[in-house]
Design a binder for these strands. Structure first.
Lengths: 254, 254
DNA sequence: CCAAAAGTGTTAGACCTACACCCATGA
DNA sequence: TCATGGGTGTAGGTCTAACACTTTTGG
């Protein structure tokens, strides 16, 4: 992987709240950025001094205990949406991911000493399909249960919270939950996913009726294997059907 | 009104899509900015030259036929949300307005020659309650029917469109439509408002049943006067009731 | 044969849709 | 008394919520 040198907009960063569904939990991918990375984005000696200063004044930044959102400053020649994708790719190797802008956070004091606004995106990925090679930009990258976040820098907790609210809203109107699941999944997995995102129990029989009546699921005629109980049928989500239904006006309310 | 001199973030502007409900139409308030204003935001002679250049290369900007969103560049010492309010106040004199962030537009080429991202907010106001004194920042300010927009600069049409979609979504889940109406209004006015925003006819009897069952309306015991037909009852929207209902989980789906 | 999760139907109530006529007012 | 918009009820269909037992599988 090559690290590009950009002219960046120092007052604007792009950050990604990357959601994944692991072990029946909704998790978020956080990292600890490599301080040397920041220097690569800043050209002058004066700026390097400022960075040093910031790291000294905010011990959290250099600490192994504090985590942040994956993101960097926006280069002047990059489209905003495109660059969010880019960030995911260069930091995690992930491609073709569902990405959606959440909002821009711009309180003056959200980052000490500097004025930095951040445009936040959330991403939905299925961790099974990606191995996260540690990018040279990161000291560490790790999944955290949304219910049990580590100590985080700046306003990251608020950002994750707002992103979760947005995800909750959207997952009820668009079938985006599928991005978090493997290509073939059981109805129980799907239900658990919704239960975790919406943070409430759903009735199994009603859930199954509803989801099957939508016609979005394709029966793969396969079953789980090697489970110590009745094997569940595996279903797939059919994008073509979804697109067809969308034209007719889809009601996906769970 | 005083014009403040700020240190601004040149790559980031804040723009407002101001919606109003006039003559049974959904309208949007646009302006023609005063080019001299831009200079006040830029300190160096070089920057003034750039502005001149931009106006020369984009005749639309100086033209009386092209309109833009009300907004300016973000000063470094201003909170994003607070500054959006500020813009409304300094350009239109309006205070205490419903404001909501839509999204940030950041295609590299959205403004020619310069990289400018814009954080867009929509505002809902009732034009009856405000007179728009022409701000010194503007050559002209005018309402336009959303169905019949004038020629606009840059990506303003797309921005208005996206804001309208957002308004449409939110108006169905939160009773924000009331911000567009006078304090006392008839059910027909309310229904027309929803019909215009959602761009579809609603059944009068069903609409009335639904809206009245929500318990958000207060009967003012007043009626229209001087109308050449049966006078309609006037209702008001009670914020206290709304807040109480919200805690219990309000379903406002129209 | 046991443990564990998969899978399945019915009923009562709430909500939604479609639809047509009389009422009050000012001119 | 006319023109204009205000105001009202019902019935049929659809959707939702609540609820408990049998089936399949591997160990």
């Amino acid at each position: 992987m090559k690290i590009l040198k950009f002219v960046i907009l120092k007052s604007l960063s792009v950050d990604c709240v990357i959601f994944g569904f692991n072990n029946n939990k909704l998790e978020v991918l956080l990292w600890q950025a490599e301080p040397e990375l920041l220097k690569k984005f800043l050209a002058t000696k004066e700026e390097h001094e400022q960075i040093k200063d910031i790291f000294e004044k905010n011990p959290a930044l250099g600490s192994d205990n504090f985590w942040g959102l994956i993101g960097t400053h926006l280069p002047t020649e990059e489209d905003l949406d495109g660059y969010a994708k880019n960030i995911l790719q260069t930091t995690t190797g992930i491609n073709n991911v569902y990405l959606k802008q959440v909002q821009t956070f711009g309180a003056t004091k959200r980052v000490p000493h500097f004025r930095v606004l951040t445009v936040v995106y959330y991403a939905l990925i299925n961790p099974d399909y990606h191995d996260f090679k540690l990018s040279p930009l990161a000291k560490a990258v790790k999944w955290f249960d949304i219910e049990n976040l580590p100590e985080v820098i700046f306003d990251v907790k608020e950002i994750i919270q707002k992103s979760l609210v947005k995800l909750r809203e959207e997952v009820q109107y668009y079938p985006i939950g599928f991005h978090l699941l493997p290509d073939k999944f059981t109805l129980t997995q799907l239900q658990t996913l919704y239960e975790v995102i919406l943070d409430k129990k759903l009735d199994t029989r009603n859930f199954r009726k509803k989801i099957q009546n939508m016609g979005l699921l394709v029966d793969t005629n396969e079953k789980q294997t090697n489970v110590a109980h009745r094997a569940a049928k595996l279903y797939a989500f059919d994008v073509n059907i979804y697109n067809k239904l969308k034209e007719e006006g889809l009601n996906f309310r769970i």
